[in-house]
Amino acid sequence: MPEPTVTAVPASTGAVTLAAEDAKLVTLARSVRARVGAVEGAAVRDQDGRTYAAATVALPSLAVTALQLAVASAVSAGATRLEAAAVVTEASALDGSGHAAVRDLAADAPIFVAAPDGVVFGTVVA
């Protein structure tokens, strides 16, 4: 069964300027993706301002999206709420399972979707 996707709302027609804390999430997601050569990188910020970054895991016995793993890392460290998330991907849409993982902890946290070069091409807010 194919994974559902969530289309990111285009952020704007030009370059998106993020707040410093949100830009840090994109930077962390980019760096973890590049470091391991993963399909995606993701980062989340919890209610205390702590950040967690992760890359896609694709093993024969385990498949976890970068965003799912970043959320799981936050939860395993005691996070109960997320303020924001970012995903760096070559895909044109956010995967449904990563989106759902963020929504488990925050109904309204923005999820910034960026290309590998760090350019944010959309924001998912619902």
Rank of each mutant, 00 (worst) to 15 (best):
R103Q: 01
A19D: 14
V113P: 09
E3T: 13
D117R: 05
V87T: 08
Q68P: 06
E3L: 14
Q47I: 00
P4Q: 10
T13S: 10
V119P: 01
R33G: 01
E40W: 00
A29K: 03
V119T: 15
A101T: 01
A114F: 03
A58E: 13
T51G: 05
D46P: 04
D48N: 13
A43S: 13
L94D: 06
L25H: 03
A29L: 03
D22Y: 08
M1F: 07
A23T: 01
V71K: 10
P60T: 12
M1W: 06
S61L: 13
T80Y: 09
A126S: 11
T89Y: 03
L25D: 04
A86S: 12
A93H: 12
V71E: 07
A126E: 09
V26P: 10
L59Q: 13
D104Q: 12
P60V: 04
R33L: 07
T13F: 04
V88D: 06
E3M: 13
L25K: 10
E3D: 07
S12D: 06
S97D: 03
E21F: 05
A115D: 02
V120G: 08
D46I: 00
A115K: 10
S12K: 10
E21R: 15
T56M: 05
A58T: 09
L18P: 04
A114R: 04
G96E: 01
L28N: 02
V36D: 04
L25C: 06
R103I: 00
E90Q: 15
V125K: 14
S76Q: 13
V16E: 08
R35A: 14
A100M: 05
S76W: 05
V57L: 15
P110S: 11
R30K: 14
D108H: 14
A79D: 08
R81M: 01
A106N: 00
R35N: 05
A8V: 12
D46C: 08
S61V: 10
T13V: 06
A20Q: 12
R33A: 10
A114L: 05
T123F: 05
V71M: 09
V16Q: 07
A63L: 12
A58K: 13
K24R: 15
A93D: 10
R103F: 00
V71Y: 04
L59K: 15
I111M: 11
S73Y: 14
A20H: 01
